[in-house]
């Protein structure tokens, strides 16, 4: 499904995309292909939605304040409550997970005060208390994600 060039582009350029005038050409030279081939391969990866984008991942809490939140919602109310939560612009990544605490989402605001205000507001609107789970330490070193193309 994916050719060798595409696999390499997916795995080897998640972290240090070249910061140079012609980055795709630098990649091409490193991989022994032409710049056009690299551009075409990225086009295809992007069209097929294998690549969300080539971009920057910002370190948590470096711009604004964020926190992971969890709610325990009865199954028959989950869709409705999830809908209310998703409507907030400050909500990012709202997921159902297999647990008594079944609704998990991230809040992002400009500062701590706004965050606390938002928490109060969501609890009031939904009628459910939340677990407030801000990040205390990040141990992750291995950035990026190694894809396994074998199976």
């Amino acid at each position: 499904m994916l050719n060798t060039l595409q696999q390499k582009l997916l795995n080897d350029y998640q972290q240090d995309f070249p910061l140079s005038i012609r980055p795709y050409n630098d990649i091409a030279q490193a991989l022994g292909v032409t710049e056009d081939e690299v551009l075409l391969a990225f086009e295809e990866l992007s069209n097929e939605q294998f690549v969300t984008r080539i971009g920057a991942v910002i370190a948590p809490n470096k711009m604004g304040v964020s926190s992971l939140m969890a709610m325990a919602v009865p199954d028959d109310q989950l869709q409705q409550v999830a809908g209310i939560v998703s409507q907030y612009e400050e909500v990012n990544h709202n997921y159902e997970r297999e647990n008594r605490f079944n609704l998990w989402f991230v809040l992002i605001t400009k500062d701590e005060q706004s965050l606390q205000q938002l928490i109060t507001d969501i609890e009031l609107k939904t009628g459910f208390k939340m677990l407030y789970l801000p990040l205390l330490a990040d141990y992750f070193i291995n950035l990026g994600f190694e894809l396994d193309f074998d199976d």
Partner: peptide, 11 residues
């Protein structure tokens, strides 16, 4: 360190 990584964001 504001940009944690710059590169391909896979789906």
């Amino acid at each position: 360190g504001l940009i944690k990584r710059l590169g391909v964001i896979v789906n």
